[in-house]
């Protein structure tokens, strides 16, 4: 196994533990059984992500973003297709609506909480395992074209993206989403060093 593969392996482990914690928190909150799985992770430049996404750049998505700073800084995002996001909320809240409504303020708050749980767990696990000090802002919800979800980050940061394809299973119905952690270059070098130390 190469060093890069070893690092990717460690990242996968960190993400999976975080996702597992998030799943147990969500399961305590809702009546339905929810399972989360991260079948694939990749480290990419922001430009490269479009080659690895099953999403179109103009596709309407719901994004929950969590800015973080400290030993590492950047932004973590949960990205869901708008239609699927609405279905997820309907299932979590037990509405079981066959044709879910658009995302209103109430639904967007629910998605923000789901994003809050997932992203806190993932980043919290980075912090625990790599022994980093990270603080987070309040998560923000946006509904827009996918390309716009990255536009502000692209301007500010020279970015390395940790892209995690995520599967949600609620009452055995599957949904796909993305968890993305965007690091600026210097933060990524720091992360790389932390990972190196742990190998």
């Amino acid at each position: 196994m190469t060093e890069v593969e070893q690092k990717e392996d460690l990242l996968r482990e960190i993400i999976n533990i975080g996702i597992g914690r998030a799943a147990s928190v969500l399961n305590e909150m809702i009546a339905s059984v929810i399972e989360l799985d991260v079948p694939e992770i990749k480290l990419l430049n922001l430009k490269e992500i479009w080659d690895h996404l099953e999403y179109k750049s103009r596709e309407e998505v719901c994004t929950v973003s969590l800015e973080f700073k400290g030993s590492l800084s950047g932004s973590a995002k949960l990205v869901l297709r708008a239609r699927e996001a609405s279905s997820i909320v309907s299932m979590l809240t037990g509405e079981n609506d066959a044709s879910p409504d658009d995302i209103d303020v109430m639904k967007s708050a629910t998605l923000t909480e789901v994003g809050n749980i997932l992203l806190n767990s993932v980043l919290g696990n980075f912090s625990n395992i790599l022994d980093l000090e990270i603080t987070y802002d309040i998560p923000l919800f946006e509904q827009d074209e996918l390309v716009k979800a990255f536009s502000s980050d692209a301007e500010r940061l020279s970015i390395v993206v940790l892209m995690c394809k995520t599967k949600f299973f609620i009452q055995e119905v599957g949904f796909s989403g993305l968890i993305m952690v965007l690091f600026n270059k210097s933060s990524f070098h720091k992360l790389d060093n932390f990972l190196q130390d742990k190998l």
Partner: peptide, 13 residues
């Protein structure tokens, strides 16, 4: 413990 903010939304709680 982690210092992250937490949200409890109306539809879920």
């Amino acid at each position: 413990e982690s210092g992250g903010p937490v949200i409890f939304s109306a539809l879920l709680h």
